[in-house]
Design a protein around this nucleic acid. Structure first.
Length: 793
RNA sequence: UGGGACGUCGUCCAAUAGGCAGGACACACGGCUCUGGACCGUGGAAUCGGGGUUCGAGUCCCUGCGUCCCAGCCA
């Protein structure tokens, strides 16, 4: 009925991201016969980071959802930076994230022979040539973004010469840089990537896999699309900065014999995360300059760093789902990462108690030399897991220094002189006396406990506002705890560096790691294995460091703090105690002398102005349309940018002599379908457009139907009158026919009707839309609106 | 600047080919609680600006502004 059915978007794509939408449409259309083959193509010259995780989740995820395949292909075309250790690390990271690739591990370097043959073919077809200019000359002659490049004197070498030279390049007859192989495309192309891109360069270097077999290596622009084709990839997903490279990608697929393969490249926005940096180059510097301990430093946004910190693969995948995928540059709030980590670990991590900054407490009414064991559950009531451990209690305890205040601020529920609090899973205690040293520093609290509150509740029903964690002074063990915090003290280190003209390393957070040498841990988990998660109650989630923990001496990494609503209320000062840096405000970028650069980019209108300046016929029509036909300057402008458009317009006028109406349709509805500003690619002519406008003008069809009919004309051609008759699209203007539909829609949506009557008149659009839908767009919307108002008014 | 892309709550992502601007995080308030956790409830909060087309525009047309990418023999 409507054009919808003929629409390529026949798949249900609601809510899908744009890549999944494309894949669903391809499946619906049968572009690849329902096959989905993606690939993840890291270069083995560094470690994977969270940004890669989003790419991995996307490419592997889409394949999984569509019963497709994903290849892991190392893009190892640059022998000077790549190394086998990275190959191993990357595989480990991908697997750890929970993905398994198809077809074994693949390498671009495995295709070197075939790629070379393809290069030979390009040369034979006259599509590539050997350029013997120096690197500087090539750069010089490439031009700039505003000026075209110029061909090198070698551009027109004969096929024979090129073949000979290429062969000798391969044979190792030349020094590095003596020659390069370039695609022969267009030195004046507005897209810099298309100015005869380099295909091969000479590099007498040892490749970690092919050894010294080759001394010429393919460039990314050449190797990537053709590797995709060799593997018969369908959807090749990469980040936005490769948008310009897509032209080269498509050019190669078109100009090299790749059989049936028709891989297509799609680009999505790369991830930026607050308080960290994400470029491999910068991460490498962090490692090499010793700002962190290595690629797997728990502060690094690398997969290995996150793994060592204790972030689970489930959280990372959840994170990727949470932030989604789109084409807009974005910067994700670090809070989202913290959220997914808590979400996951809340369910998994057993609870134990650890005191990071111990303050001694003596229970004066507890018998000297005695102790007892209390049973404490490992999980809270709302986590469906069983288990408990024994916690020793005695006369001497430690509590968190920040859980005591001599002079408590408002809403401080913890311990203070004369106040009673609950020791988690144990007894109520009351603080009687504060002991200080000569310097006035609090060194000990003397408290009394209420023996009747064993287990944490009072038989007399009295309540305490605060519960604090604690450990036995005599039975707890000293452990090393590392408190990790954001790596940088500003949200956007790159931006801060740029606006201040300094290096990004100047914004490192000196508190990103605070090591506590002797925290006090309850004995039950004193010999925790490496690689285990715990929640230290009231503090956060911790993970036994898999590298530095030794048997019987675990080292704990703080993965993330607990959400802390008290921290928001409390004065920001004492946060150092928990290593949580106060959120530093960013240096305002507004002070920078913002360069007011005038933009002289030509608008479409200006382009058409230029065309009319050299085409008197169009210029004359512009005047005539505006002055004699009474069109607005905007309409006259759009219609006179090309003869095919002006011709179409006038042909339409010959059928339906209402310039204003025809212009309206041509400009607002049809112009978007003009190909390159020309109307001659259309499957119909001006006469059909005129006929369509006439149908609408005579109220034979509604304007909405008119648009549907136009859509059909655009996709299949045809005569509007015939389309209307064929599909029964005549407009219904009879109130008696529409009224029952209106009533039915109102009856079907009593709640909405109520809201409308209550004043939410914006719902009129909803009711009109519903009726339009029910009538297949044939009802007169103005009439519907009138009826809706009457019925609900 | 030539070309390519992108602008929706503070943040990230939606809105079925024009028809109720929605979700999550964050935030605020309240409830519950032996973790100031978790959980539950409530609330504020956005279509970059200006014109136009339409009964109706985030979505279509014109225009202005802003941001990102490209001038490696890196990927």
């Amino acid at each position: 009925m409507s054009a919808r059915k003929d629409n390529p978007r026949s798949a249900d794509t609601a809510g899908l991201d744009f890549v999944r939408t494309i894949v669903a449409e391809d499946n619906a259309k049968g572009t690849y016969g329902g096959r989905v083959a993606t690939r993840f193509p890291p270069e083995p010259n560094g470690f994977l980071h969270v940004g890669h995780a989003t790419a991995i989740c996307l490419s592997f995820g889409i394949a999984q959802e569509n019963n497709g395949t994903t290849n892991l292909r190392f893009d190892d075309t640059n022998p000077t930076t790549e190394d086998t250790s990275y190959v191993d690390a990357i595989q480990k990271d991908v697997r750890w994230l929970g993905f398994e690739w198809n077809n074994g591990v693949l390498y671009a370097s495995d295709y070197f022979d075939r790629l070379y043959e393809m290069a030979v073919q390009l040369v034979q077809d006259g599509n590539a040539y050997v350029d013997s200019c120096s690197e500087d000359e090539i750069r010089e002659m490439r031009g700039t973004v505003t000026t075209p490049g110029v061909p090198s004197v070698y551009r027109d070498r004969s096929v024979e010469d090129n073949l000979d030279l290429l062969e000798r390049m391969k044979a190792g007859e030349f020094e590095d840089g003596a020659h390069v192989l370039r695609a022969k495309i267009d030195l004046a192309h507005p897209n810099m990537k298309m100015r005869d891109p380099l295909l091969y360069r000479i590099r007498h270097a040892h490749h970690y896999r092919t050894g010294d077999d080759w001394c010429i290596y393919p460039m990314y622009d050449f190797a990537h699309p053709l590797s995709d084709a060799i593997e018969n990839i369908t959807h090749s997903l990469c980040t936005l900065e490769f948008e310009n490279n897509r032209a080269v990608y498509d050019w190669l697929i078109d100009n090299v014999d790749v059989g049936e393969a028709r891989p297509r490249q799609y680009e999505f926005a790369r991830l930026n995360l607050d308080y960290t940096v994400m470029s491999k180059r910068k991460l490498l510097r962090m490692v090499e300059e010793g700002h962190v301990d290595g690629w797997d430093d728990p502060r690094m946004p690398t997969i290995s760093g996150m793994r060592r910190r204790g972030i689970t693969p489930e959280s990372i995948r959840l994170f990727c789902d949470l932030i989604g995928i789109a084409k807009a540059d974005s910067r994700v709030d670090i809070g989202k990462l913290e959220y997914v980590i808590r979400e996951d670990l809340n369910q998994k991590a057993p609870r134990v108690m650890c005191v990071l900054d111990p303050l001694k407490v003596v229970i004066t009414n507890y018998p000297e030399g005695e102790s007892e064991e209390l049973e404490a559950p490992l999980y809270p009531h709302d986590i469906p897991k069983e288990g408990s451990r024994a916690v020793p209690f005695g006369r001497q305890l430690y509590i968190e220094r920040s859980d005591f205040a001599e002079d408590p601020p408002k809403r401080f529920f913890r311990l203070a002189p004369g106040r009673e609090v609950r020791l988690r899973y144990a007894y109520f205690i009351t603080c009687d006396e504060v002991i200080k040293d000569d310097a006035g520093e609090i060194v000990e609290l003397r408290c009394t406990y209420d023996p009747d509150t064993r287990g944490g509740s009072a038989p007399d029903g009295r309540k305490v506002k605060g519960t604090i964690h604690w450990v036995s002074a005599t039975d707890s063990v000293a452990v090393e705890v590392r408190l990790y915090d954001r790596l940088f003290k500003v949200a956007n280190p790159d931006d801060a560096a740029a606006t201040s003209g300094t290096d990004f390393t100047g914004f490192l957070n000196p508190q990103s790691r605070v090591t506590i040498a002797e925290a006090r841990l309850e004995p039950a988990v004193a010999d925790a294995e490496p690689g285990c998660h715990f929640q230290f109650e009231r503090l956060g989630y911790f993970f036994t460091d898999p590298v530095d923990s030794t048997a019987g001496a675990p080292v704990f990494n703080r993965v993330v703090t607990l959400r802390d609503t008290w921290a928001k209320i409390a004065p920001a000062k004492e946060k150092l105690a928990t290593g949580q840096a106060a959120r530093t405000d960013e240096p305002s970028a507004g002070d920078a002398p913002a360069e007011q650069r005038r933009r002289i980019k030509r608008s479409k209108s200006e382009a058409r102005d230029g065309i009319r300046a050299t085409n008197p016929e169009l210029a004359q029509r512009y005047e005539r349309y505006r002055d004699e036909l009474g069109l607005s300057t905007e309409e006259a402008d759009v219609l006179t940018g090309d003869m095919s458009v002006a011709g179409l317009f006038e042909d339409a006028l010959a059928v339906h002599d209402d310039a204003k109406a025809v212009a309206n349709w041509a400009v607002n509805e049809l112009s978007r379908h003009f190909d390159g500003g020309k109307a001659d690619g259309l499957q119909f002519g001006g006469a059909e457009l005129g006929a369509l406008v006439a149908l609408v003008a005579s109220a034979t069809i509604s304007r909405k139907t008119g648009k549907d009919v136009l859509a059909i004309m655009v996709s299949e051609g045809g005569d509007p009158g015939a389309i209307v008759v064929e599909r029964g699209l005549e407009q219904v203007t009879d109130a008696a026919a529409i009224e029952p539909v209106v009533e039915q829609v109102i009856a079907a949506n009593p709640g909405k009707a109520e809201e409308y009557r209550a004043g939410r008149t914006g719902l009129a659009g909803f009711f009109v839309g519903q009726v339009m839908r029910q009538t297949g767009g044939t009802a007169d919307p103005e009439l519907i609106q009138k009826l809706v108002r009457e019925k609900l008014g």
